[in-house]
Design a protein around this nucleic acid. Structure first.
Lengths: 205, 205
DNA sequence: TGTACATCAGTGAACGCGCGTTCACTGATGTAC
DNA sequence: TGTACATCAGTGAACGCGCGTTCACTGATGTAC
């Protein structure tokens, strides 16, 4: 309610947009999803928002800076999406832990398949996000870490198998997603491959 | 020797180039490696070969067709490179089989790191190469298949672990390569991660 | 061996285009008094 | 509460550019006779 003095609601505003920066990122994300990062033009993004191209330069150094933001957004969306699917499965049994593992893998691949261009840009040179694989704000790979810890604590995995294995699992999921996206692995084989992974690490014993 | 009537040697030839198609692909590969596929122009490639831009249209439908050829070339170079490293390690002992496995992983990652842009284009939409993961001409994933067979036959791996595991291993290596290329996994951790994989699947027991 | 000719693989000028970015500007906002 | 003004966030015209692609053409090749 009230007169929208502070909130960036998109009223029929003139001249001052309110939150042009976010609006540009948002439109750029949409354009990237439609046509791929390499075919996105700053002019088209500005036009979509209804603003002149030069307005963007009050918020971004150049086009690459805007696309960098898109890449970071994509990475965060991926992490959110995986996190949400995992969080949806409660329980501290061994089976629950295994299902969370499975859900994480499926969510990672599904995100890639349903947002192919965004996934691509998130793992392209446009993404300057610091080393360390998809992270949330605290700086490591928390979702997967907890997942593996749960598997150990519920007896689904040996502790020495688990140690330092985060990057290997992330790599495997990332590879599955990329190759599926590329059509090099049929999407319908993914569940089967995820259970193969479970077999390899002995989670399904 | 003789007067080079049939061989496509690059003499000081005028007008007819001899093997313009390959020369264009070759120059395009070089350009891609230098500036990345999205910044390669057909005109620049033609110029590098010393030919007018329109000449390219006698050999490729359009620019995308040329880049598709570059992508396919990159994929084949990757397969060749991995194959060569693996082939360099002889012996039918369990240890030799393990070293071949290690060499394949290292070669895959090394290729990505030393040809980043070519690796990227090989796994981009430009690459229309049929499904089925990096292949040689006979149509499957022969290097890795043989590798795994060797591990089984020398007692380094259980047969039921091995079954249908090709895609999982390719995915893992591909993920490692991609994330290392992206700076998300430090290159110097790769050997350590490869031995972690060996531990996970029990090759090092 | 020599000539006529169809075919192939080049040329180079021109097309229209959309792009990123700059610049001098101006309208809106909100703060100080 | 009302006014002056600095600051912020837009505009829109213009820049120069390199691009993919087309077209009518022409030089070189090699084959048939």
């Amino acid at each position: 309610m009230s007169t929208a003095t502070e909130a960036p609601e998109h009223a029929g505003r003139s001249y001052h947009h309110g939150d042009l920066r976010s609006a540009l990122v948002c439109a750029a994300v949409a354009r990237v999803e439609q046509v791929g990062a390499e075919h996105v033009s700053l002019r088209a993004v500005a036009a979509e928002v209804g603003v002149s191209p030069s307005a963007a330069y009050h918020h971004f150094a150049d086009k690459d800076a805007l696309l960098g933001e898109v890449a970071a957004t994509g990475l965060h969306m991926l992490v959110e999406s995986v996190g949400a699917e995992v969080a949806a499965i409660a329980g501290d049994t061994r089976e629950a832990a295994r299902l969370r593992f499975r859900a994480a893998g499926q969510a990672y691949v599904s995100f890639a398949l349903s947002h192919p261009q965004l996934f691509r840009v998130a793992f392209s040179p446009y993404c300057l996000e610091h080393p360390g694989v998809p992270t949330t704000d605290d700086g490591s790979v928390p979702v997967l870490s907890e997942l593996l810890n749960d598997l150990v604590s519920t007896g689904g995995m040996n502790a020495d198998v688990r140690d330092d294995s985060e990057d290997v699992f992330v790599a495997t999921l990332h590879g599955l997603a990329t190759l599926a996206l590329q059509g090099m692995i049929p999407a319908e084989r993914v569940p089967q491959l995820l259970s193969k992974i479970e077999q390899l690490i002995g989670v399904d014993d």
